[in-house]
């Protein structure tokens, strides 16, 4: 049909808006990338073939698995468990639990991880070379009563433990718990109070309503920042040297560079491994978010958008 003034307007066929500055930016970025690649090729100190060799060295792989990955997973597990407990304590009616959680978070957020790891690895061993589990003040009590036993049930030699990955796991995990506590608290507070009321009205105890109803919904808010924390933890395992623990990716890769007087390949090898590990973690995070997002969001809320988020507005 022709488009005379009396006709009803038809399909829109308009000129798209031009974006000339985008093309300028693309050109600029292309030049910078070209310069970088040219540096890779022309500057022999990059020495990528050697970096790839370092990546495959046994001590480096061992450091990656036993230090970086094992350390990350264990420290995060400890951090999540302790952090969740702390967040529930922080939100409880019990003033003692609230106080303990607050002081814990205050302390472990204030102390740098490097300092904490050095303190645990070197300092604690200097203070106590053996941990004994028994009656409090057992030695003093047994001395007073003239007993032979010092009332200990179980002893642990800290010096034997002090240069192992376990100190790193404890240090990083306890530090992480302080951050996880705040993340979990935000997640729990994000759940509509009506959910807890509905659970209680059905006869659930507060513990059960927390486990079955509140936490699964809080996970939707907790998972994304926990992914961030995990990725940060991968990088923080490079601090294990403070303990000192040397079975760890960065230290091993750096040592290879040092020993062969080729500094850069060591850094490149470590960087590439960190990039690979973090990329894999991001994929895992995507699936976790999708799991805990079930029942929420666009994919399931086709039918009635108004009620996509129950309790989103209004009273009761």
């Amino acid at each position: 049909m022709s488009t005379g003034p009396t006709d009803r307007p038809g399909a829109i066929d308009a000129r798209p808006l031009r974006h000339p500055w985008r093309w300028v930016a693309v050109a600029l970025i292309a030049v910078l990338v070209a310069m970088l690649i040219s540096s890779f090729v022309t500057n022999p100190r990059w020495d990528f073939p050697f970096a790839f060799q370092i990546m495959q060295q046994r001590p480096v792989i061992e450091g990656l698995w036993k230090g970086t990955i094992f350390g990350t997973v264990s420290a995060m597990l400890l951090g999540i468990v302790v952090g969740l407990a702390l967040s529930v304590m922080r939100l409880s009616d019990n003033p003692v639990l609230r106080g303990v959680a607050f002081v814990y978070t205050w302390f472990f957020r204030a102390i740098p991880r490097y300092v904490l790891l050095a303190l645990l690895g070197i300092g604690v061993g200097f203070l106590y070379n053996e941990f004994r589990i028994g009656l409090p003040f057992g030695q003093q009590i047994s001395h007073l009563l003239g007993l032979k036993s010092d009332l200990t049930f179980f002893g642990l030699n800290w010096n034997a433990l002090s240069s192992t990955i376990w100190v790193g796991v404890i240090g990083l995990g306890l530090s992480e718990a302080a951050y996880m506590a705040e993340i979990a608290r935000a997640g729990i507070l994000s759940v509509d109070p009506g959910q807890r009321e509905a659970a209680q009205a059905l006869g659930m105890s507060s513990g059960k309503s927390m486990r079955r109803i509140v936490l699964p919904q809080a996970m939707r808010v907790i998972v994304p920042p926990t992914g961030n924390e995990t990725i940060a933890m991968v990088k923080d395992t490079s601090l294990l040297i403070a303990i000192p623990v040397i079975t760890e990716l960065y230290y091993q890769a750096y040592q290879f560079g040092q020993r062969s007087f080729k500094i850069m390949p060591g850094f490149v090898a470590a960087t590439l491994w960190y990039l690979i590990v973090c990329s894999i973690l991001m994929v895992g995070q995507y699936y976790l978010e999708r799991y805990y997002g079930r029942g929420f969001g666009r994919t399931t809320a086709r039918k009635n958008k108004r009620f996509a988020r129950p309790g989103g507005a209004g009273g009761a």
């Binding site: 959910q195 919904q217 029942g295």
Partner: peptide, 22 residues
């Protein structure tokens, strides 16, 4: 726990439904 047991006998329906979305 005892309060929870008392609530078992009483059903409640809320203005905003409060179904468990997950």
């Amino acid at each position: 726990k005892a309060i929870a047991a008392q609530r078992c006998e009483i059903g409640m329906v809320f203005q905003r439904f409060n179904l468990f979305p997950h």
